[in-house]
Amino acid sequence: MKNKIICLLIVALSIVACTAPPKDKALTHEDKAEIKSEITAIVDSIATSANELRTDYFKKIYWNNEEFIGVDLTGAHSYDEYMKETDEMYASMKSINFVEDQLSIVVFDDKTVVALFEGKAKGESKDGVKMNLNNFNASMVFRNIDNQWKLVYTHESAEQEIMMPETDSTMVEESM
């Protein structure tokens, strides 16, 4: 009887050991490459959406949660504030063109990735103001939430150069 209990205990422990999820399973090179590919596609889609002056993709990929933090040239924002500011800015633009110089991606684990975008942008508002964003940098933290990559934190900075449109005396008088 004692041997049967020991055998059953060994079998039960073996089953638990075989079916338990591995703890801190290291990602393989292939796993990391696949995650980097997924994040690269997301960052490319963010840039494409920006260049097309569309914010619908931002609303899908940025984490709509009270813990989201977006830091840009005007300060730190919640998800709602960041989306409102982004919608307003893109609605005022005639064109914008982000160009990637370099994208670096660090995969920490299967749930956390940091992407560093370096590049530049040129744009023009609907009222003729032209801008250059030189040395544009975006640091982005992605989390895998419910099997979807979400941007949970972003920090953007740039050297911003603004060129006012040529004005004639009529335009100057109207603005006074």
Rank of each mutant, 00 (worst) to 15 (best):
V107P: 02
K126G: 12
K111C: 05
Q148V: 10
A76P: 08
M1Q: 10
T55M: 02
I6C: 03
L13E: 05
S78G: 10
E38Q: 14
N132K: 11
A12F: 15
L8Y: 11
E174V: 10
I61L: 02
K2E: 13
E52D: 15
E100F: 07
I46V: 15
A20D: 03
A76M: 08
D72S: 14
F142W: 08
E88F: 04
V99T: 15
M171C: 08
S175P: 01
L151T: 00
E174H: 10
S92R: 11
E85A: 15
N144E: 11
T40R: 11
S104E: 12
S139R: 08
K32P: 09
T19D: 03
V114F: 03
S14K: 02
E124V: 10
E34D: 13
D44E: 14
L27P: 08
A17H: 09
V113P: 08
E156S: 09
M164I: 10
S78N: 04
S169C: 11
M176E: 15
M93S: 09
K25Y: 06
S157P: 03
D31T: 11
K60V: 12
I39K: 03
T74N: 14
T28D: 11
Y90Q: 09
D31Y: 03
D146I: 08
I15M: 09
E124C: 09
N132Q: 15
A20S: 15
P165K: 04
I35T: 05
N144R: 13
K84L: 10
M131E: 08
K23F: 03
I6E: 00
V107W: 00
I96W: 05
L9A: 13
I145Q: 10
G119M: 01
T19C: 14
D44I: 04
E52T: 12
A17L: 12
M176F: 10
V16P: 00
N144A: 08
M83E: 03
K94I: 00
F68G: 02
A76Y: 06
L116G: 08
F98M: 10
Y57T: 02
D31A: 06
E174D: 14
V113N: 00
F68Y: 14
K4L: 07
K126R: 12
K36M: 13
K4I: 05
K111D: 06
N97T: 11
K25L: 14
E85C: 04
K25H: 06
E81N: 12
W63L: 07
D110M: 07
Q160A: 12
N144W: 05
D127T: 12
K94G: 13
E118P: 02
W149F: 11
E30F: 06
K120Q: 14
E156L: 09
V141W: 02
I145V: 15
N3F: 01
K150F: 06
N147T: 09
E159Q: 14
A121N: 13
E30L: 10
